[in-house]
């Protein structure tokens, strides 16, 4: 059985093509299987976020192809990509990016509504997700009433709401204190272990790197190392 979730072939993203081309991502091959807990690391400007954007279908590569769950997203129209992202990919952003006018519950429910899931199933899933992130008592809180860590946990719940094939997280712990970062990592790790949810995240955070099953290092848009690291208990 093919467990491949992400398959990127020779992908490059080039800026300033007309003058002096700058390779944000340079001829990258990446293969991620279901249940991986992978960290993309590298110095600032190494292309981590660009690579995540390409894999997430937010941006298109100038060269190469990206196959997600067997579907080539580089051949999709913008509208098909929107629909594909909604059904297949969960996003967690560095600065939480919750919708400020919606409550925590509504932020998560919003994605399910976009998917056309009926009210009963939405309610059920919301309770499961908020139990998982440990914020069942914060359902009606607005993002401004939550701490950074709590907001990022809601963002994880939102990413999981659509039952995606994998979750892309761009520096998820960058804006969190140690305690909050550890809590978030525990939740993500638990989801990975228990539900085999695939995570691919960019990070500078050593705590994240330490807990990743696999660490890919990018420098100047190229993968310079790709190694499984020792999983350390929390």
């Amino acid at each position: 059985m093919d467990n491949t979730v992400i398959d990127a072939h020779n992908i490059s993203k080039i800026y300033n093509k007309e003058n002096i081309p700058v390779y944000a991502v340079n001829n990258v091959h990446l293969h991620v299987e279901k249940g991986e807990f992978t960290a993309l690391v590298g110095p600032s400007g190494s292309g981590k976020t660009t690579l995540l954007n390409l894999i997430g279908g937010l941006d298109l590569p100038d060269e190469g192809s990206i196959t997600i769950n067997g579907e080539d997203i580089t051949r999709m129209s913008p509208n098909e990509l929107i629909d594909f992202r909604l059904k297949n990919i969960g996003f967690v952003f560095q600065s939480f990016n919750l919708i400020p006018v919606l409550t925590a519950k509504e932020n998560v429910e919003f994605i399910m509504q976009l998917q056309g899931i009926d009210l009963g199933k939405r309610e059920q899933r919301i309770h499961v997700l908020f139990d998982q992130i440990g914020l069942s008592d914060k359902l009606e809180s607005r993002p401004s009433q939550l701490s950074g860590g709590q907001q990022q946990r809601v963002a994880v719940a939102r990413a999981l709401a659509s039952k995606p094939k994998f979750i892309l997280a761009d520096e998820p712990t960058a804006n969190l204190d140690s305690q909050s970062a550890n809590n978030l990592l525990d939740i993500m790790y638990k989801l990975n272990q228990e539900e085999h949810m695939t995570f691919l995240f960019s990070t500078h955070d050593q705590r994240v790197i330490d807990r990743a099953k696999r660490v890919i290092t990018l420098v100047d848009g190229r993968i310079v190392s790709d190694t499984a690291s020792q999983i350390l208990p929390a």
Binding site: G56, L58, R85, I99, L114, Q115
Partner: peptide, 8 residues
């Protein structure tokens, strides 16, 4: 962000 998440 909403477009990224799948708002058409």
């Amino acid at each position: 962000m909403m477009m990224a998440l799948g708002m058409n």
